[in-house]
């Protein structure tokens, strides 16, 4: 009855986890894109926006950084359907609900890195751009953002790596991504050690791959004064 680890891996674990892997990627990629996009907008608005907009984005960041991600995931999946406006309510499937939760939470953290990047660029460069006849918008677009993005990249990358790992929380609202699939296999086979250790390896590979891609991006954007500090 008991098969070796390699046979178990080949017959059950890898085919199961492969399917979970694609679901994980289908959650991680849109969440990451959403997070970066929200973070970019919120970060720019927190620094350059008019006062009411600044306050609104500050409130967004406090709310989503200040509550547990599990609570947010539960909210979008279990609570949102009960909120009815004019007789209409929104019911999200498990995958869209996870993407929304991860994207919004990630965006709050990303905006913090973007904001830091923007603030690290000396105001003198904006003045110089304006003095050449650029509009504020042109100055921000072609002078500040390209530098702020390079400065923010290590932090933003770190947040993406967190996102890969907290995507496992989608399993608690029934998404059969890597962790969800692994839990099911473990329940059915009782081979907990093998299943969860192998699962760990999957995440490790994903994170290593993402780290490598981020370093490639950092290197391709590297100019003197904005180099990646190699350890």
């Amino acid at each position: 009855m008991s098969t070796t680890y390699l046979e178990f891996l080949r017959a059950e674990l890898v085919p199961g986890l492969m399917e979970g892997l694609w679901t994980s990627i289908a959650v991680i990629v849109p969440s990451a894109a959403l997070g970066v996009l929200i973070g970019l907008f919120a970060g720019v608005l927190r620094v350059y926006g008019p006062r009411p907009v600044r306050q609104f984005t500050e409130a967004y960041v406090s709310l989503f950084r200040g509550t547990p991600l599990v609570v947010q995931v539960f909210f979008w999946y279990f609570a949102l359907p009960y909120i009815s406006i004019g007789g209409h309510s929104i019911v999200l499937d498990a995958i869209p609900a996870s993407i929304l939760a991860f994207g919004l939470c990630s965006g709050a953290y990303q905006s913090e890195y973007i904001r830091g990047g923007l603030l690290s660029i000396k105001r003198g460069q904006i003045r110089a751009a304006l003095a050449l006849g650029m509009t504020t918008r042109q100055a921000v677009q072609s002078v500040v953002l390209p530098q702020a993005f390079r400065r923010a990249l290590p932090g933003c990358g770190n947040e993406l790596i967190y996102l890969i790992k907290y995507s496992s929380l989608a399993s608690i609202i029934t998404v059969n991504e890597l962790t969800g699939t692994a839990t099911t296999i473990a329940k059915n086979t009782w081979r907990n050690i093998e299943v969860f250790c192998t699962l760990g390896v999957y995440y490790l590979v994903l994170v290593t791959l993402a780290t490598w891609l981020l370093h490639l991006l950092e290197d391709s954007l590297s100019v003197p004064g904005f180099e990646r500090h190699k350890s």
């Binding site: 003198g124 460069q125 530098q147 004064g225 904005f226």
Partner: peptide, 11 residues
């Protein structure tokens, strides 16, 4: 305009 601290675009 020329500034005391140059204000070149660093990137």
């Amino acid at each position: 305009m020329i500034f005391q601290d140059f204000n070149l675009f660093d990137h």
